[in-house]
């Protein structure tokens, strides 16, 4: 499904919105189509790379946890405002435990046999994003954050 785009000038901020089913293949395809929009093609390679890492972690988290034993959609809205990409992701799965985002502390790296094989996602999201905010309302999870972009919109 192609994301809807609005790229008006002097009008609302340029944005893209996409709704995908909450499964890993749909996340992969969804990221592909989002990064093919005019909105994201306009970012530098460095900014695109950071955005794809953060969005992938946020979406994978929803698939693995919020929808761990149910099915539902994920709604992604991206908005480019001046030098920021504003991301809002909504799902109807389970709430975050205690309605709180994980702190994302990395486990210490010791012997090879004890290396962590997961738990990287929130650390990566928290490191690369700003104003990370989570809210549970009316049976929906809403996650929002902002990403710096090096070039102004348009």
């Amino acid at each position: 499904m192609a994301p809807s785009q609005s790229l008006g000038s002097g009008q609302p901020d340029p944005s893209a919105r996409l709704t995908i089913p909450g499964d890993p293949m749909a996340v992969r395809a969804g990221l592909r189509s989002l990064f093919d929009t005019i909105l994201l093609r306009g970012l530098t390679a460095e900014d695109r790379s950071a955005a794809e890492i953060v969005l992938a972690e946020a979406l994978n988290n929803i698939v693995e946890h919020a929808y761990s034993n149910s099915h539902g959609d994920i709604d992604i809205t991206l908005q480019l405002r001046q030098t920021e990409l504003i991301c809002t992701i909504v799902d109807t799965g389970k709430p975050m435990p205690d309605n709180t985002l994980p702190n994302g502390h990395l486990s210490p790296l010791g012997a090879v046999k004890d290396l962590p094989e997961g738990g990287f996602g929130w650390h990566v999201i928290r490191t690369l994003s700003k104003d990370l905010h989570y809210q549970r309302q009316d049976g929906r999870n809403q996650l929002s954050f902002r990403l710096d972009t090096t070039q102004p919109a348009n």
Partner: peptide
């Protein structure tokens, strides 16, 4: 992504 990274780590282990 971090799942892919986890898999690479698992292979090393």
């Amino acid at each position: 992504d971090s799942s892919g990274l986890g898999a690479v780590v698992a292979v090393m282990k």
